[in-house]
Amino acid sequence: MVNLPHPIQYQGSKRKLASKILSFLPNKIERFVEPFAGTAAISIAVASKNISQCFWLNDINKPLIELLEIIVEQSDEIVSYYTNIWNAQNHDSIGHYFEVRNKFNQTNDPKLFLYLLARCVKGSVRYNSEGLFNQSPDKRRRGTQPHKMRKNIEGVSALLKGKCQFTSLDYREVLTTVKSSDFVYLDPPYQGVCGNRDSRYFSGINFDDFVISIEQLNQRGVPFAISYDGKLGNKTFGMPLPQELGLRKVEIEVGRSSQATLLGRAEITIESLYLSPNLLNGQSSELESYISKAARQLTLLEMYGQFSAVT
């Protein structure tokens, strides 16, 4: 699934984990909902597998969700716009980047955002205390070439066009309106990494508020999965979700950290996936099969007493 179209480079995207995450989802979903859509990597994967034909993509970062909508619904327009911006770099590509960044911060034009995301350092979004995008350009490259961008945009549009609702709401507004026939995938900023405000995220979330929202989903019988905390070597990111929620936790090995490798450390990145209590009913054999296959990959599965962790 790594080869699926993804026009937006975005640090924290679950693109490389999509196939593992989908292995725990139902085979058919009436409506797939992402309250923290980001670049919609999981929705793209769901659409590619024909698991759902209806999507609700939401993100509090309004220019980002508006950009997604343009990519999906107006692919020709954004391809042309991006091509023109990319070609205008000429000899002073660094100066051009800062000009585009200044204009974006003045207008919040989502079409400008695409070029910034394609050209900024490591596809990593950064904001200052005033909420302005302030990430620097990658000086080693000029951003995704237009022909590659066209291919990715057209690929995403082919998968999602006419199937999506796009909103920029607080995630709690989304969760209060979802139904038991929906499936909700949540990928919020790690609690403990971002707090209520951090330069790496447009907006953080409050841990207690998030737990209350999950409790309410459980009470209403809405199936969901959450990518939430993680580990890098011996360092843990984010507070684990309370066992009282009755969630099933899968710890998935992402791979060796490239930064750690450069520093001569063999640190493995692991991300957690929490599954709602009603999601895997009657699938114990599949879970046991997953455990046996994953042991070699250092993937852990904890079922809060129902299964032992693999070591």
Rank of each mutant, 00 (worst) to 15 (best):
G38K: 03
Q53A: 14
V33I: 15
A41K: 03
N61K: 05
N50D: 11
A47M: 03
S52A: 15
A41R: 04
I42P: 08
N50G: 09
A41N: 07
I42R: 10
V33M: 09
I60Y: 11
F55D: 01
S48Q: 12
A41I: 01
G38N: 00
A45D: 02
A40I: 10
A47C: 05
I42T: 09
P63D: 10
T39Q: 07
A45V: 03
P63G: 13
F36Q: 01
C54F: 01
L57E: 04
K49T: 06
I51W: 03
P63C: 13
F36K: 01
P35K: 13
K49F: 02
S52H: 08
I44A: 00
N61Y: 11
K49N: 11
A40N: 01
S52K: 14
S52C: 13
G38L: 02
N50K: 15
K62I: 10
V46L: 05
C54Q: 12
D59T: 12
P35L: 08
I51C: 02
A37S: 13
S48A: 15
S52L: 01
S52P: 13
V46C: 09
A45M: 09
I42A: 04
E34C: 07
F55W: 13
P35E: 03
I42Y: 01
A47F: 00
A37W: 05
L57A: 07
F55A: 13
I60T: 08
I51R: 15
P35T: 12
T39K: 06
E34S: 11
C54W: 00
A37M: 04
P35C: 10
C54S: 15
N50I: 06
V46P: 04
A41T: 00
N50P: 02
L57S: 08
A47Q: 07
L57H: 09
A45H: 09
V46Q: 04
I60L: 15
P63K: 04
V33A: 04
G38T: 04
N58E: 05
V33E: 03
A41Y: 01
I51D: 00
F36R: 01
I51F: 06
D59K: 08
I51N: 05
N61R: 12
I44G: 01
T39W: 02
K62F: 08
K49H: 11
E34K: 11
S43Y: 05
A40D: 10
L57G: 08
A41Q: 08
N50T: 11
I42Q: 06
